[in-house]
Design a protein around this nucleic acid. Structure first.
Lengths: 240, 240
DNA sequence: CAAAACATACATCCATGCATGTATAATGCG
DNA sequence: CGCATTATACATGCATGGATGTATGTTTTG
């Protein structure tokens, strides 16, 4: 029964995008047929060609849906409720990003981007990943520069180096996770790893009278494995 | 004119693998047709189906060709001409690996693995990457454990953490490079990054009378590397 | 009544798999 | 050692299916 109301039309569009995520993730972008996606959404190929020009357009729309909220997160990076140290801000923001990546939608779409689509002409995931990497890197670089000025950084490394090291570590962590997402929890492993990482680059000569004493921050540094609930502890001081 | 000699047959097989690398890298694995690969190798599809069962088999054979020499490298990791410190050994071996990755063949095949093929049933790049990651990690973990026993590691981090950090950093670097291989040199950027990284984790309390003084190492790059013999460059075939 | 929001039908293309052809190198045999 | 045979190393042709793009039909809503 064609000619639904406008809200229904938007609903089928979203259903198509949801179905695209699932089918792309299951079969890969190239082997996924529009027929399958349409069927998974409960419609026919006609609906697909009405809402999208072709498969590449559908793919781009699927990416757009996660690009915006994710960039919001990246740009919300400097915003911190408390005037903590700059390094602390970066650390918490990255942890937030890692937790987001474990949400089903981001996990699926990133899984598609990383292991289930091929770069070619119209479909080009790399350009988007590169773009996101550049903006994110520019943002954190500003933060690391500030940290350097504040004397939070160990003197032997500059802000640029710290920034590069940081993004390599994070990217490597995410890619390692996507090699087998069931092997470990990205958020909790990332938290532990980042604790160690920031412990390595932060200045230990605490002449920092600017910031509050901050009693030990890596309290359980020798005690790695946090007490066992382990289940993506998101409710901890993280505003939604 | 069929029925070539055995060496010629092996030559066309190699030519097919070379062509597969090129075409896979150009169009992606899914969109590359066996027709195209055969033409690029100067033969017809008949030759492809003679040497390989199907596209997945060809893909696997292409991977096999780089898997073996690369694992040789990984396993040659502990072998060091000079009794340097353990951390130094890891650093130099990783640098060697990074230099290898800039060689055309490894660059192409890794580029295919990372951005130009989709995981699915028969074609599964992830399992190979995971396998290589595990063996490499097991090897370096042994090294880091030895470094820990020798007191080369900063006391606040253990061998397991150092190993995880190390592989995340390396993986992140390689993936960043593959986002745009023309943006920077993997070897030289990697050398700089690794210098800083090992500077961060190594123990500064130099009670190490075991190793030679080794003046400042940071930012310092002395001789490039052994002008190696390039190893097994036999695959030069491509008739016509 | 016109356009939106699809469903249906149709034509086209092309990659795959296999079957068959074929000429030559390798091999066994007398 | 010559020769027939056979397996080899492909080339060619055919059949198939499945995906794509588009054209057209069908309601219903605004």
């Amino acid at each position: 029964m064609p000619r639904r109301t406008r809200e229904e039309a938007e609903a089928t569009r979203e259903a198509l995008l949801d179905a695209a995520e699932l089918v792309f993730h299951e079969k890969g972008v190239a082997r996924a047929s529009l027929q399958e996606i349409a069927r998974a959404a409960g419609v026919t190929r006609g609906a697909v060609y009405w809402h999208f020009r072709d498969k590449a357009d559908l793919f781009r729309a699927m990416l757009e849906r996660i690009r915006m909220p994710f960039e919001e997160l990246v740009e919300a990076l400097p915003a911190s409720d408390r005037p903590r140290s700059v390094l602390e801000t970066i650390r918490l923001a990255s942890l937030l990003a890692l937790e987001r990546m474990e949400e089903p939608r981001f996990k699926r779409v990133h899984g598609i981007l990383i292991h289930r689509c091929e770069i070619f002409d119209d479909i080009d995931p790399v350009s988007m990943m590169r773009e996101m990497a550049l903006t994110a890197s520019a943002n954190t670089l500003e933060q690391f520069r500030q940290a350097e000025r504040d004397g939070e950084l160990r003197p032997e490394i500059d802000a640029e180096t710290a920034n590069r090291l940081f993004h390599c570590t994070l990217r490597g962590l995410v890619h390692s996770w996507h090699l087998d997402t069931d092997a470990f929890s990205l958020a909790s492993s990332g938290r532990e790893l980042l604790n160690h990482w920031f412990g390595l680059i932060e200045n230990t000569d605490s002449q920092q009278s600017l910031t509050q004493p901050e009693p030990q921050r890596h309290g359980q540094r020798r005690e790695h494995h946090a007490p066992g609930h382990q289940g993506r502890g998101q409710g901890r001081s993280q505003p939604r």
